[in-house]
């Protein structure tokens, strides 16, 4: 159960990550207020995806994990994207 040679994230890095996440949140709220029409949904989802990637990379320490774990997480998110794509193809062309 001993944890070896793990990367230690500095407090400064954690603060910076939080600051970026809060900025992205503010941007997404402001963007919605501007009523961009059809692009609103796309923009909101892109910003959310960027935020999720930042949390996974820094708060969840994926940047400092071994390649296998990173590939697994990437693979699962890819699988999830494929499931969504197939569901929508099925829904729109039935």
């Amino acid at each position: 159960m001993k944890n070896h040679d793990n990367h230690i994230s500095s407090y400064m890095l954690n603060w910076t990550v939080l600051l970026v996440l809060l900025m992205l949140t503010t941007i997404s709220i402001l963007a919605i207020k501007m009523h961009l029409g059809a692009y609103t949904v796309a923009l909101a989802l892109i910003l959310a995806s960027i935020k999720v990637t930042i949390v996974l990379t820094y708060f969840m320490h994926l940047k400092f994990e071994n390649t296998m774990l990173r590939l697994m997480v990437g693979g699962v998110f890819l699988l999830f994207a494929i499931v969504i794509a197939i569901t929508f193809t099925d829904y729109y062309f039935r």
Binding site: S28, V41, A48, V52
Partner: peptide, 10 residues
């Protein structure tokens, strides 16, 4: 992070 824009913002 996904629930907030989906339910509240859009």
């Amino acid at each position: 992070i996904f629930l907030f824009p989906l339910l509240y913002l859009i």
